[in-house]
Amino acid sequence: MPEVVIQTENLTKRFGDFTAVDEITFEVFKGEIFGFLGANGAGKTTAMRMLTGLSNPTSGKATVAGFDVYKQPENIKKNIGYMSQKFSLYEDLTVMENLQFFGGIYGLSDNQIKQNSEALIQELSLQNQAKKLVADLPLGWKQKLAFSVAIFHNPKIVFLDEPTGGVDPSARRQVWDLIYAAADKGITVFVTTHYMDEAEYCNRISIMVDGKIAALDAPGNLKKQFSTHSMDDVFYQLARGATRNE
């Protein structure tokens, strides 16, 4: 049995009389790429906030990297990485400065930061860009760099919120190559996306509808279960029934 790194049990979040996340129960295993799908407003963001220790659940249980989301959010934050489409890097700092900053806030030593940065710049072949402002990089590179920064401190789990939105198809695949490489190293990847072809890249995916998890399985199994050939169709069949539309 593989090691469980995220475990939730009836995890719930209510805002007043509105239940954003409604008793979700699931497990994510070590080294897995776990796709977290759902329509806009289905409760993905709220669930992700609870798991990253940014918001307290109303009820239910959850542990992330072995730590309790109620009692040990600080420990959780030390063991996870986070990247979103909206914010990831400081545009007005250079590539190197960003690495120094993010290494610093995760408590890496100067030496480690230096070594890791050099390795990273080598890997992404950013040698000529290291002293450039992030704002001047093409979007695809930014996203690759942002992902690398999110796993810079070698976290147990990395949370990715639409990591490839608006990126060209070639760069999108390069980001996914990096995601695969990270998963091979044993980093668990928890990712949301609106690209259904990317859902196929995940080991398992969950689809949220109206705050509940409506389906959770490997992409192939889900397609069988809904007797269709495309993930698009699985998603459509599930999410079309959504009643919530706020």
């Binding site: 329509a39 939105g165 609106h194 998603f235 459509y236 959504a242």
Partner: peptide
């Protein structure tokens, strides 16, 4: 349709 889920996009 940027950032909009597949159902709404359709």
């Amino acid at each position: 349709t940027t950032g909009v889920d597949p159902v709404s996009r359709k």
